[in-house]
Computed example of a mutant assay.
Amino acid sequence: MNIRVVVVDDEPLARLAVKLRLARRSGFELVGEFADGDSAYEGIAALRPDLVFVDVAMPGKTGLEVLAALPPAQRPMAILLTAYDGFALQAFELAALDYLLKPVDDDRLDEALDRAQQAFPYRGQGRSAPPAAPTTRSFSVRVGTRTVLVPVAEVERIEADGDYATLHANGKTWLVRERLHKLATQLDPRQFHRVHRSTIVRLDMIAELRSLTNRDALLRLRDGSVLRASRSYMPALAEALQHLNKQSA
């Protein structure tokens, strides 16, 4: 099931930049674009997209006003676009997944799209259908002249290491010749979540979550490890943990 996307920005080049990057990613379908807040409000209400990229400062309604005017049950996942680094509080009050500073960096946009794919299975209004099971059952790891298969079910967390990634599984670490971003697309979002741009964690490994004053959080894992969760990943993570708790209740 594709994530249906609307792009809202009064700058044609800004809309084009997002559309070109969306076209490079599978799993997303552009269903509309708008150049001002008033038409965006009407279009989003009519199209009912799953995700909206929305500029904060636009003619008519601002991007924040567009989101706030929509009933919560009809409000899509949102990624804010802005030239100013000062909208984090309003963004998260409206449950926005992320906000990206212009000009938008490719890696940051990929992170935001990853976050949307992670949050998508838990959305209401017919958006809660579980994703297809991932094809990856194990990771191939080169150890000298040998190739070792590490089962995904044994992986507890994954950390970025430059262009590679380190798997933590059963007290051992394994270096994988893949970037963290690519590994994230191979994992079931019902079981694994990105909690930082450099860390993916298996949800059932989280034993405690402690909020910090800057809206980040500290995660204590069942093996005693302590990790930092970035505030930009917290809305999707909180929703996934809520869903996991309902399943185990």
Score class of each variant (00 low, 15 high):
residue 94 L to T: 10
residue 69 A to S: 15
residue 67 L to W: 02
residue 70 L to C: 00
residue 100 L to Q: 10
residue 65 E to N: 02
residue 84 Y to N: 15
residue 98 D to H: 10
residue 120 F to M: 07
residue 90 Q to Y: 15
residue 113 L to Q: 07
residue 111 E to P: 04
residue 63 G to K: 00
residue 120 F to P: 00
residue 90 Q to L: 14
residue 119 A to K: 07
residue 63 G to F: 01
residue 81 L to S: 14
residue 71 P to Y: 11
residue 105 D to E: 10
residue 71 P to Q: 07
residue 88 A to T: 11
residue 101 L to N: 07
residue 99 Y to P: 08
residue 87 F to T: 13
residue 103 P to S: 02
residue 68 A to H: 03
residue 120 F to R: 09
residue 92 F to V: 09
residue 92 F to C: 08
residue 75 R to S: 06
residue 93 E to A: 14
residue 95 A to I: 03
residue 116 A to V: 02
residue 80 L to K: 13
residue 66 V to F: 01
residue 76 P to G: 05
residue 68 A to R: 12
residue 85 D to G: 11
residue 73 A to G: 11
residue 82 T to Y: 15
residue 77 M to P: 08
residue 100 L to N: 07
residue 97 L to F: 09
residue 69 A to R: 13
residue 97 L to S: 08
residue 105 D to R: 09
residue 71 P to S: 07
residue 79 I to Q: 03
residue 96 A to D: 09
residue 106 D to I: 05
residue 64 L to T: 03
residue 102 K to F: 02
residue 100 L to D: 10
residue 94 L to F: 09
residue 85 D to C: 14
residue 91 A to T: 10
residue 74 Q to W: 08
residue 99 Y to V: 05
residue 78 A to G: 06
residue 66 V to R: 03
residue 117 Q to E: 13
residue 108 R to P: 11
residue 96 A to W: 12
residue 95 A to E: 14
residue 88 A to Y: 10
residue 109 L to I: 05
residue 111 E to N: 08
residue 101 L to C: 05
residue 83 A to K: 12
residue 113 L to N: 03
residue 114 D to Q: 13
residue 77 M to S: 06
residue 83 A to H: 13
residue 82 T to G: 14
residue 68 A to W: 03
residue 99 Y to A: 04
residue 64 L to A: 01
residue 93 E to T: 11
residue 65 E to R: 01
residue 113 L to P: 05
residue 120 F to W: 07
residue 109 L to M: 12
residue 69 A to L: 14
residue 79 I to F: 03
residue 115 R to P: 09
residue 92 F to A: 09
residue 94 L to S: 10
residue 63 G to S: 00
residue 89 L to K: 15
residue 88 A to F: 11
residue 76 P to V: 05
residue 89 L to Q: 14
residue 84 Y to R: 15
residue 105 D to C: 03
residue 96 A to H: 10
residue 104 V to L: 08
residue 106 D to W: 05
residue 120 F to V: 02
residue 116 A to F: 02
residue 106 D to Y: 05
residue 97 L to I: 12
residue 116 A to L: 01
residue 115 R to E: 06
residue 109 L to R: 03
residue 90 Q to E: 15
residue 116 A to Y: 04
residue 107 D to R: 11
residue 81 L to F: 14
residue 79 I to G: 01
residue 108 R to G: 09
residue 111 E to V: 04
residue 95 A to R: 14
